[in-house]
Design a protein around this nucleic acid. Structure first.
Length: 374
DNA sequence: AACGCGGGGAC
DNA sequence: GTCCCAGCGTT
């Protein structure tokens, strides 16, 4: 168990190992608090490889906290398009506003002040405090919980609040007076590159091998213990590509809930026949000319699965839609937008990627390899 | 304490 | 298919 395990001998080996074995990552090039902050928010529940294409572009577009605070919401979502958990970037902007108003535009160098900011919880507050300001605060993430469960052979449910509280307390007792950011990153690096979350751990390259009870007893196979989540529900949807030439109809999702404030192709919650789809288009205020069935698609969120069918409906005059907003179902407003303008301005979540592809719509961050045409 | 919230890579 | 990722906010 963790509370009967002495972590103090593990600190120096972890830090020494990290200096030699750390990966070269874009957010390790400097210790600017804003840069560290952006990277830590992006990395919440998100793999390093997924963050890489976004990090530089985000900071190039918004080089300072003041820029973030002043950024229009659509541009903000566009910079985050495809990264997921979009409330992260909304909260980050709220925090930027607080920093502008209360902290003179500078990230505060105080753990409790950092923790008070929207979108910053115990983990992120510890990461920013230690990496940017060398404050001795732990940063307990999934990696840290896993390696601590294994090294101390603790079978507590690492998803529980108690496990996080105990890990936090145990680490507070051994934080180095200087180099806390190195120590925190070292533990995460051990978890990410040696004490792997799936598949067999690479104990041969772990600096904690000789201290690790799971390694000594061969119990790593059933550690850590992690309770199961709720099974996801299934939703059927029909997606409409309503278009006239290069103009396609999109709508904006509600400000709360799943994919809040992002844009999408009009869709309904059941599978519609071709006849019903045509009726729906007419109800939206369009005059259908042709209809074509698109490929089926499936998108898995953490808590729901969409099983989608789609129709491309060519209409005679998409301009009319601007006058027909009252006919649009629910609280959504839809309107026709040029495809090129969608890719420049409007964030369309990955769930619609199959249908975005049907109109050759570019989504997601501009990557170097795509810019170079490779 | 449980749930909502994205997307994708590794197995 | 399952698991889980440099988690947080709400209820």
């Amino acid at each position: 168990m963790l509370d009967q395990f002495d972590l103090s001998p593990l600190v120096t080996p972890a830090m020494d190992w990290f200096q030699v074995n750390k990966r070269d990552l874009p957010w390790r090039r400097d210790r600017d608090p804003y840069h560290i902050w952006v990277s830590e928010i992006m990395l919440q529940q998100t793999r390093v490889e997924a963050v890489k294409p976004y990090y530089q572009g985000f900071l190039a577009a918004l080089p300072s906290i003041a820029d973030l605070a002043a950024c229009p919401q659509d541009q903000l979502n566009k910079l985050w398009e495809g990264l997921g958990y979009y409330s992260r970037v909304r909260n980050m902007q709220k925090a930027a506003e607080v920093i502008m108003e209360k902290f003179g535009g500078q990230m505060p160098s105080d753990y409790d002040a950092i923790l008070s900011l929207p979108g910053i919880g115990p983990y992120t507050a510890g990461a920013i405090s230690s990496i940017a300001f060398d404050l001795p605060a732990p940063a307990v993430d999934g990696n840290v919980l896993r390696i601590l469960a294994r090294v101390s052979e603790d079978d507590i449910d690492i998803k529980s609040d108690l496990a996080k509280k105990r890990a936090q307390a145990a680490l507070e007792g051994v934080m180095p007076a200087s180099g806390s950011g190195i120590f925190n990153q070292a533990m995460m690096e051990i978890g990410a590159t040696a004490c792997l979350p799936n598949g067999d751990p690479l104990c041969g390259q772990c600096p904690w091998k000789k201290y690790c009870l799971a390694n000594r007893h061969g119990s790593w196979d059933h550690l850590p213990v992690r309770s199961k989540g709720k099974p996801r529900r299934i939703e059927e949807r029909t997606v409409f590509i309503v278009r006239n030439g290069s103009r396609v109809v999109i709508d904006r999702r509600p400000d709360r809930g799943l994919l809040a404030g992002l844009y999408e192709f009009p869709n309904v919650r059941e599978h519609l026949s071709e006849e019903a789809a045509l009726a729906y288009a007419e109800q939206m205020g369009y005059e259908p000319l042709r209809i074509r069935r698109l490929e089926e698609a499936r998108h898995i969120f953490s808590h729901v699965e969409w099983r989608m069918i789609g129709y491309e409906i060519r209409v005679s005059d998409a301009e009319l839609a601007k006058e027909m907003v009252e006919n649009v179902p629910a609280d959504k407003i839809s309107w026709p937008v040029d495809i090129g303008e969608i890719s420049r301005k409007y964030a369309i979540p990955s769930a619609f990627a199959a249908y975005a592809k049907a109109i050759q719509l570019e989504r997601g961050p501009k990557r170097e390899d795509r810019v170079m045409g490779l």
